[in-house]
Write a protein that binds this DNA or RNA. Sequence first.
DNA 1: ATAAAGTCCTGAAAGC
DNA 2: TGCTTTCAGGACTTTA
Length: 260
Amino acid sequence: MPELPDVEGFREVLMTCGRQRCVTDVEVRDTGVLRGVGAQRLRREPTGRRLGEAWRQGKWLFVPVGDGGPVLVWHFGMTGSLRCCAPDEPLAPHDRVVLTLDGAGHLRYRDQRKLQGVQLVDGARLARIVGGLGPDALTVSRAEFRDVLSGRRCAVKSALMDQSVIAGLGNLLCDEILWRARVAPRTRARGLSETALRCVHARMGRVLELSVRAGCVPPGRSWLTGHRDDREPMCPRCGWPLCSNRVGGRRTVWCPQCQR
DNA sequence: ATAAAGTCCTGAAAGC
DNA sequence: TGCTTTCAGGACTTTA
């Protein structure tokens, strides 16, 4: 589920629930979500320190721990979430890591499939993660957007999905953006006209604005995304039957009439 | 059993 | 030709 808008929501959870709070305990309930850190260190290092200002790049969420301390790194894979809970709220089966905060209850990392997870990194490793990411989709300028996309030989959908090109877009958002921009997902990125690229950038901005406000990609019927699970999906704009096929290995839905 | 909204890795293809 | 970049596909994980 989590794409940029969801992670932006988790950042807000972290800010409202955790900012300037002291970590009093870290409980690792399933070590399968730990990446490059053991349960012991994940508990020892943050405990007794304050959470700083959380920030996000693409689908990654970062929060510094203490002054000059390490940075907690969260990635939510396809099924992860971060929630603020009262300590007496029953634990869910997939609550994998629980931070206890002074006076503010629990911060719980829940994840059904353990495709990604939690890290605790120093400056160098943080730089490695961020360095592998393209500009954030929420803030990228039109000019930079054009620059990173225009040379790509692959399908525009694959380019948008590639986090090292542009960070934050997932499968649903890409389909939605291309549909609104009336661009076929298999079009080669470098074959797009300046006008088309502008349009994709503008539609991306609009889709993200609405999604971030909702905290997810909204399931509305006026969105393409609201139709992907229909039995015989129709384009909500022109009524043509939608196509569904694989592009870059991912299920892709588009309207063959609107998107050429 | 198949497929799912995540990324990473690998080998192959394409480009210079 | 040889080196580098780009791309497609599978692995990973759990569940409906």
